[in-house]
Amino acid sequence: MRKNITLIIMSAGESLRFRENISIKKQWIRIDNKPMWLYVADLFQERYNFSKVIITASFRDIAYMKRFCDYEIVQGGNSRQESLQNALKYVNSEFVAVSDAARCNLDFEVLDNLFAYNLDSIDCLIPTIGVSDTIFLESNGNKNYLNRDNIHLVQTPQISRVQTLLEAIKLGDFSDESSAINNYGGKVVSIKGSKILDKITFLDDLKKLNISNNNDTFIGYGFDVHRFCKNKDMYLGGVKIPCSFGLEAHSDGDVVIHSLCDALLGAIGAGDIGEWFPPDDEKYDNIDSKILLKEVATFINSVGFRIVNIDIMIMAQVPKILPYKDEMVEIFSNILNLQRQYINIKATTMEKLGFVGRSEGVCVSSSVSLKLFL
């Protein structure tokens, strides 16, 4: 066990360059049926047995990531450095090894050399590779050709002395640990890296990975009930329905969308609508439930899932649902980016039985099926 080194995996980014033509964040690409961030963390931990492994996560991802593992998951920030600063609050070792979740092809020959290195007299140890192509800097149309023998590409993981790193990152924004420590005046030492350690940055970079398609289907079920109330508009399936009463709820009361959100969250094991949008949170007071559905759908796509189909059963004695079903389908198609033939909405009365039959409220059940993008 490397008791004096804590491992931090950086996984809080939004993958904006990667997501130009796809909705999934790169750290959620599955490798061996694990999201990339977990796959990388497990590879490191199985080989080097760190005393602690910390993984940074975005605000929206953090609760979901905690369902996957026992590693310490901490909320990141708006930049890599801010995420690192948050993670360092949980580090109590002398050194920290920081690596990117997207650097998922690990070269253990390089890493073994890195973690066997004597760290006594240095502040930061980094793997680097040279460049083989001619290189120049261009400014105002002028090209300044550089000696490529003096150019080095810095990779991760980087091992840094924690106290030095903490002081160094107070001095500005830096793209990595070595640049911060070098600016601070600390001693940075490099070893030979490897092209295998290339980071996944763009969608085309996935060609570097050995990804096999996962054909599993994920099923979710949602159920919700709301009672009628006066002095409120009626919304069902995103449609405002002419009615003399509405549905009692902290939000707009759209029981159809609430049921669908629960089904979607259930399919990926991400909790329920009450956890996501607490009824005691004032920012959700009378909120349009279509906004909630959009947030859930965006999250589901970002962590690697696509919706295959949805099937909804609305149980209501009143109001009549049939005149509004097509409009509901169109709304869901637009929000979920799902073709209309894969959206089915059914409606039934309860033959005047029970609270629905007595026209006291509406009951909705939803089922969905999802698949992984890759």
Rank of each mutant, 00 (worst) to 15 (best):
I135K: 07
F277S: 03
D120A: 14
M313E: 11
L370Q: 07
D288V: 05
S212H: 13
K290L: 02
K232Y: 11
F50K: 02
C243I: 01
L106P: 03
G246T: 10
A249T: 14
F299R: 10
P278S: 12
R227F: 10
V188F: 09
V303T: 15
Y145A: 05
L206C: 14
D100M: 11
A249G: 15
D61Y: 03
V98S: 05
S160M: 08
G274Q: 07
N182D: 02
Q85N: 10
D281Y: 08
L203P: 00
N337A: 13
Y64T: 11
K52C: 04
P279M: 13
V364K: 07
G220Q: 13
A263V: 12
L111S: 02
T134L: 08
S194T: 09
D107N: 10
L209E: 03
W28S: 04
S93T: 15
Y117P: 05
D280K: 04
K170C: 01
D204L: 05
D254K: 07
Y64P: 01
S99K: 06
N286A: 09
K346P: 00
S289P: 03
D311R: 09
H250T: 15
Y221R: 11
I312S: 09
Y221F: 10
D120N: 08
L43W: 00
K283I: 05
A101C: 14
V225C: 02
I62M: 01
A267R: 14
L247D: 04
L372D: 13
A270C: 14
I291H: 11
P319A: 11
A97N: 15
L236V: 12
V91M: 07
Q75Y: 06
L165H: 11
N86C: 08
Q27G: 01
Y48S: 14
G13R: 03
R47F: 06
D123M: 07
Q155F: 01
T349L: 03
R30F: 13
G274P: 00
L236C: 04
V356I: 15
N144D: 05
V40K: 13
Q158F: 09
D254S: 15
R306I: 12
S175T: 10
V162A: 00
I24R: 05
S51I: 14
N213H: 13
I8N: 07
D281F: 00
N105Q: 15
I73M: 12
V239T: 05
G76S: 08
